[in-house]
Structure formats: C-alpha cells, structure tokens
Nucleic acid binder design. Sequence first.
DNA 1: TTAATTTTGTAATGATTGATACATAAATAG
DNA 2: CTATTTATGTATCAATCATTACAAAATTAA
Lengths: 193, 193
Amino acid sequence: MRGRPTIYQDANIVKKAQEVFWQKGYSATSLSDLQKATGAGAGSFYNTFKGGKKEVFQKAIEERLLAFDAFKKELSKSEFPLELIKDFFRSIASAEENEHLKGCIIANTVVEMTFIDDNLEADAVQILKEVEQMFTQAIKDEKLKGNLKTQTDPEILGRYLITFWCGLNTLRRMYPDKNVLKNQIEMQLAVIS
Amino acid sequence: MRGRPTIYQDANIVKKAQEVFWQKGYSATSLSDLQKATGAGAGSFYNTFKGGKKEVFQKAIEERLLAFDAFKKELSKSEFPLELIKDFFRSIASAEENEHLKGCIIANTVVEMTFIDDNLEADAVQILKEVEQMFTQAIKDEKLKGNLKTQTDPEILGRYLITFWCGLNTLRRMYPDKNVLKNQIEMQLAVIS
DNA sequence: TTAATTTTGTAATGATTGATACATAAATAG
DNA sequence: CTATTTATGTATCAATCATTACAAAATTAA
C-alpha cells in the first residue's frame, strides 16, 4: 500500500479519546483536549475520523459495547451465570477511586445527552437495555433451574439490576469507598436470591 | 432607593435559567441560551450576577435545596413519614415525559461535574447526602416505633433509597413510561417494610 | 430641577470552539 | 528515478464562547 505510514492508529486514538470523554463527558471535552491526549494533530485527527468529535465519541461508546459482548460471551459459557453477574457487581467495590469518579461512560452518556444529541442518547440507552436484557435472561435461566426462591418477575428483577447499576454510578461518586460500596452492593444483590 | 427600576428579578432569572440547566446541563448551556430564556441581556445578567454563569447555576442548585428543606419540614410534621417518602417516589411514575427526561438536576450535576468543577460537584454531592440522611432518619424512627420488620441497618436502607433515586434518574430516561416506572418503584419500595 | 444612582441594551472584547485548507513528509508501485 | 498516494503538521477559518465596557434610560434624593 502506498502513502505515508500511519503513526496514530484508529484504535489507539479512540482508546485515548475514550479516557477523556469518560472523565469529562462529551460537551466539556474539546478538540484541543483530544489532540493533547491522543498526540494526533488536527490533520491526522480529521483524516482518520471524517465525522470529527462525534464520530470518535461514538467509537468510544462502541468499544464499551464490545467489552459488554465479551462479558456476555463469557456468561454464556459459565456454569453459574447469575453468580458471574453478582461477582461483576462485587468487583466494583474494590476499584480505584479514579474509577469510581469516572463511573460508567454509558450511564453518564444517557444522563448527559438527553437534550443534546438524540443519536448518542439513543445509542447509550440501547446498550443499557441490552445489559438489562442480559440480566433478565440470566435470572430467567436460574429460575428455570430452580435456583431462585423469589417470586418476583425476572423482567422486574432485570430492571432492578440495571437501575442499581445506574444508581451505583452516582453512589460511587458520593462514596468512593470500598467498604461503603461493598456493604451496599451485598445488600442489593441479596434481593436476587 | 434611587436608580432605574429592575425589570428582571433575581429569582425570576434563576428560575428561567434553572429550566435550561436542568435540561442541558452546565457545560452545554451557553450564556446566549440563558439570555434567550431569561430575556435579560448581558448588561442585566452580569449586573445581577457578578459571578456569571457559575453563580446562576449555583443559585439554581440552591433553589432545589430549598425545595428539599420544605419537604423535610413537611416530613417532620407528618404522622407517617415513611409513607410520605414512599408516596414521593410513587409520584414520580405519573410525571410528564419531559420531567422523566430531565431527571433530577442534583443527580445530573453529580454525574456531569466530577472532573469539571469541584465546588459544584461538592455542592451537589452534599445535597444528595442530606437527602440520604433524611431517608435514614425516617427509617430509624419507623423502626423505633416497631413498624419495620426488616433487620437491615437503617443506614444501609437510607443509602439503598438514595441509590434507587439516582438509578431512577437514568431508568426514567430509558423508560419514560408510567407503567414501567410504577412497577419498578413498587418493587423497590417493598424492600423497606 | 438637578445631581446621584442604578438598571438596561448594545457593542465590543479576546479566547476558544470544531473544522478545513494545504503544503510537506514519507511511503510504494511501476 | 518518478509518479502516485496517503498521513502529518501547521496555519487558518468563521462561529461561538463567557465576559466587559459604556452610553443611554429611568428612577429618587436633595
């Protein structure tokens, strides 16, 4: 292939940009921020992403969707899927403070984008719904196997978990503290049993 | 008192500005947005609020704190305080779609401001903690009166409610639907009994 | 009436925004 | 070696950003 070699790989730009978007959100992140974080100048940036800032943000969101898909795949192979989900929640407690403050970029986006950008908002909502669907399915399966005492509708329980996830997204910022979060997570997971 | 009469009352500017901030957040709201919404030009605007955009946002947040104080006062007079809190959650379900999409301006601010403005972030976190404290106290009181079966620590239950509140803040945007929200709210409130 | 005082409206301010233009660098195909 | 192609770096764009400057308007105290 002809042409000057690429220094700034698409995937790398997205990764670095994602970090900034995750912390500052979409609106408060400037092109200057992104250029500083990625190292790429305006030339490389717009040559790689014709859609500019918005396209990069979308790619950053998509990257999270891929991470979710990977988890779902792992879940499908798991012998105790519901335990895997619970352990995922439990693992949140022991995250670094900075991770608590960043929260979940998808949940953040739903909150930020409502009256700002319909496409980005819808993309993020869609992902949260897919996560919810995964929760619901795992609960249904566990119920069929007779491992769940609760009589509550799996759909309600799936929504309960996604609501918890979004609530945790703010609670982590109020209390970026391992013990507080651990107690809270255990209490909320106890509902699913 | 001497001087040209005031057309744009402080309180009115804050009220109108709050509506914009509530929808678009802090960063995405421009001075031009605020001037359009309030009717006040740059002259009046900066004459009234020397602190500019940030001061008005702070005042908009304070207004919500006052609303919370009013609720707390009502609660202190109530015969069944925990029922009043539950009814408050229940009332959310029947809100207009636009109210669902706006969510809670305090919870929104916690999510938006983390890496943007320490003061505004801390203000919003403080308010959520005060709301949590109110929940906790109401639960303690009810427990002393012997009206609560659950053995869970009131502190955990208070945090459970504030987590639910913040989770609902996103769930309402995913499902701005009366029935979905009603079911979800009832299920979550059933934990406090 | 006049002087003092305050608010208002408008016109600027310089800085920053996201995006484009374009010459140059650096590679490969022929 | 040359032509072609692609990526990069820099200069620049118009638009918008939050804020300030300031003259005119509109009141009251004296």
